[in-house]
Design a protein around this nucleic acid. Sequence first.
DNA 1: CCTGCCATGTAACTCGTTACATGATTAC
DNA 2: GTAATCATGTAACGAGTTACATGGCAGG
Lengths: 192, 192
Amino acid sequence: MNALGYALLGMLMRKPCSGYELTQLLEVFWRAKHSQVYPLLAKLEQEQYVTFEHVEQTGKPDKKIYSITDKGKKLLQKWIAQTPAAPVIRDEFLIKVYSIWLTDKNTAKKLFWERISTFEEKVTHRKEEIKKMEEEYGETITNFTSRHFGRYLLFKRKLRQEEEEIIWCRWVLDLLDKANEDSETSIEGKRE
Amino acid sequence: MNALGYALLGMLMRKPCSGYELTQLLEVFWRAKHSQVYPLLAKLEQEQYVTFEHVEQTGKPDKKIYSITDKGKKLLQKWIAQTPAAPVIRDEFLIKVYSIWLTDKNTAKKLFWERISTFEEKVTHRKEEIKKMEEEYGETITNFTSRHFGRYLLFKRKLRQEEEEIIWCRWVLDLLDKANEDSETSIEGKRE
DNA sequence: CCTGCCATGTAACTCGTTACATGATTAC
DNA sequence: GTAATCATGTAACGAGTTACATGGCAGG
C-alpha cells in the first residue's frame, strides 16, 4: 500500500464517496488524477479495505459509492502511528530562483511578482475556506475528536506557508531594488 | 527537457561538476538519485547542452567532469523566463494529520513531537549553512549578479518555512492539551 | 572486519501524468 | 454551438525509487 491509498482510506473515514469526489477532495493534501484513483480503488476493494455500491442516477452518469471496511480502518490506524517518510517538494520556481543570477533584473522581478500574485490568490481563497469551517462547525473544530479537526489543521498550516511565501518574495524584491547599479536592461547587458 | 535537466544546467553554470557531485548538490532544491542523474547527463551531452572530460584519479575512481555549453546556457536562460509550473508537495505526514482524529492523543502528540524534533535539526543545520555563506561571501551575496545569490535566497526561504513548521506544530500541541477531557488512553477508549 | 566515501552505470519496478474513450445535462 | 460538470475507465508514456554491480581507500 502506498501513501495515496492511505489518503483515500482517510477520506472515506469521514464519509462514503465516489472516486470522482475523492479525486476532487484529494487536491487539498495529495495531488492525484482520476486515472490513478480509479484503479487504486479497485485494488483496495479487491483486498477488502473498501466496499462499494452502485448508485443509479437520472440525468447524471451512475456512480460507485465506496465505504471503508473495518479491515481498512485498522490498516489506516496502524499506518498513522508509524513515523512518516520525509516530505518531497518539487517546485520548478525554486530551480529558477537558484539560477536567477543568469537573467536580467526585469525577468527576475517578473518571476517574483507572479509568484506573489498566485500566492495572494491562494491566501484569499484559503481564508475563506477557514472562515467557512469556523462558522459551520464552531468551537468543535478545535476538538481533537472532530472529523474536521485534521483538515482544519492542514488549512491553517497552508495559510501560514502561503503568507510566508509572499513575505519572502517581497524581501527578495527589496534586495533586487536596493542594489540598483546597472543591468536594468537585458541579458546582453551582463558580462560572461 | 524536464525540470531536473534544468536544475543540472543551473548547477553547471556555477562550476563544472561530476555527476556524483551534482547528485549531492541537488538535494538542496530538487531530490534525485544518481540513477536518474547519470542517464540524464548522458542525454544532455548527446544533445550538446553539456560536454565532459575524463579526469583520472589515483586512489579514487576516475570521473567525468561536465561543463555547460553555450547552447545549454541559452536554453536555460530561455526556460527561466517562462512561468513555472505549480509546485508539487507530497508529504505523508500531512495525510496522517488529516486522519489524526482516528488515533488516540498519545499517538497524535508523538507524531507532532517527532516532526518538531526533525525540523529543529533542520533549522540548526540551515542556520549554520547561512552563517557560513554570509561569512564566506560577505555583502556580495545579496547582490543579484553573484553566483551564490540564488542559493542564498533558497536557504533563507527554507529556514523561514522550517521555523514556521515548528511554530505550527507547537500550536497544534497546545490545542491537543487544552481540550483535556478524556481519551488520554488508547484507541479502545474512543467511540466508533 | 565493517562501514562509509568516492564514482559510475543499468535493470526492474512503482508512481504519476497525458491522452484516448464515452455520453448525458446544464449554462452561456 | 460549445464549454463545463458529472462519472468511470484504460493505454502509453515519463518520472522517480530500489536494487544490482564493481572496486579501492580510509577510519574506527
